[in-house]
Design a protein around this nucleic acid. Sequence first.
DNA 1: TCTGGGGTCCTAGGACCC
DNA 2: TCTGGGGTCCTAGGACCC
Length: 419
Amino acid sequence: MFALIDCNNFYASCQRVFRPDLNGKPIVVLSNNDGCVIARSNEAKELGIPMGAIAHQFEKIFEEKNVHVFSANFALYGDMSQRVMEILSEYSPEMEIYSIDEAFLKLDGYENIDLQKMGEEMQKKVTKGTGIPISVGIAPTKALAKVANRIAKKYPQKTKSVYIIDSEKARIKALKWLKVEDIWGIGRQIAKKLQSIEIKNAYEFSELNDNWVGKNLSVVELRLKHDLQGIPTLDLEEAQPKKNIATTRSFETNYTELKQLEERISTFAVICAEKLRKQKSCCNSLMVFIISNRFRKDLPQYSRNIVIKLPYPVNSSIELSKFAILALSKIFKPGYFYKKAGVIVQDFTDENISQLTIFEKSDERHAPLMAAIDKINATFGQQKIKIATQDTKRVWKMKQEKLSPNYTTKLSDIITINL
DNA sequence: TCTGGGGTCCTAGGACCC
DNA sequence: TCTGGGGTCCTAGGACCC
C-alpha cells in the first residue's frame, strides 16, 4: 500500500501556527511581489477568493471580510516542511518527498496494522510536533492514494481526514466520485479531450481501452490509467539531482535600461551558481530571457531568450554572471518596458569530474573563493558577499509588504512566550 | 499602479548515420 | 511512371505537477 500525506492549505497553515489568534479566520498568502493569491485557508476559500486571484482586485474584499494577508515567506515554509517530513519519515523507511507539502510513504508489511488508526496517529503527531494539519490517503497504488487523500480532505469530519481504499468496491466508488479533470496527471488539455468523448469521471477513464489511451494520449496517461485500475505502475521515485535550475523574477516596476537588467541578470546568475554548488554540479549551458510587460497592451511588446553553450563547465558565480550578462547583451533591445527576466542553467556535469577541455578551463582560483563566499553567506545571511555587477546597495528583492517574521530560522524572530 | 516561481517528462520532427 | 529502410541523437514545444 501507498500513503499520500498532504498538508492542508500549507502556506496558510504555516502562518497560522505562529498566530493562533487567526484560527478560524480567513488567511491568504500572496505570490512574490504580492501579486496574486497562492494559498488560502478554508475560511478564505469559503469567501469565494479563487486561487490566483489578483491581489489588488481583491483589496476591498480583504478589508471588508477581515482577511489576513501575508506575503510569501518561503524560508518559513521550507523549514516547516522539513519538520513535517521528519515526523512522517518515522512511519516508513521508504518515503518520497513529492513536494513542499506532500509525501508518499510505501507501506510494505503493514498487513496486520490498522491503517485507519495509524493515519490518525500520524496526524496527531504532526499536529503536535508542528501545528500543521494534514490529510492522509491510503491505497494500493500512488494514483489511488492521491484519490483517497482527496476524499479525506473533502470530508474531514466523516473520514477523520484519513481515507483508505482497500477493496475493489471502494476503488470503484472513489473513482466514480472523482471528476475526470480532477485526476492527478490529467490537466486542462487532456481533460478536454476526454470530455469530448463523454468520459466524465475517473472510473470511466480507468475503463478505457489501453490501445486508445496509448494512441490518442500518451504512455504517461496509460501508466496513470493502470495505476487507477489498481495495478501498481508508478513507484516511489528517489530524489535526483536537478537537471535544470532556474532563477526568474518579475520586477516591482518596469525596467527600461540595459544597466538595470544587467544587475538583475547578474544576481539571478549568482543565485543559480549557488544552487549549482549546493548540488555539486557545473552547468555547460545557460539560457537568459527577458520579457516586456505583457499586461500592458498599450505598449510595444518584446520577449526573447537565448541559449549559450559555455566553453567549459561552470559553477563559479563570477563566471556564470559574466556569461549571463554577455548573453543578455545579445538579446536586449532598448525602447521596451521589461517586467520579467530569468536565468536558467542546464546540461549539468559533476563538479568533480575533470574535464577534457584542453584550451579553456574555469579559473582554478574560483573554487576556493566560492567555497569561502558560501561559508560566509551561510553564517552571516544570504548575499552578504556579492559580486560587483550586482547592486550592493539593494537589500530588498521585491514587494513584500505583509511579510511575517522568520519564526523558525532567524534568532531575532523567535516568538516570546509570556507565562 | 498592480498579474508568481520552479520543476519534470514525453513527443514529433529534423539532422544525421549506414 | 518509377525515388528504401532502419536506426540514433538532439531540440523545441507542449503537457503536466506543486
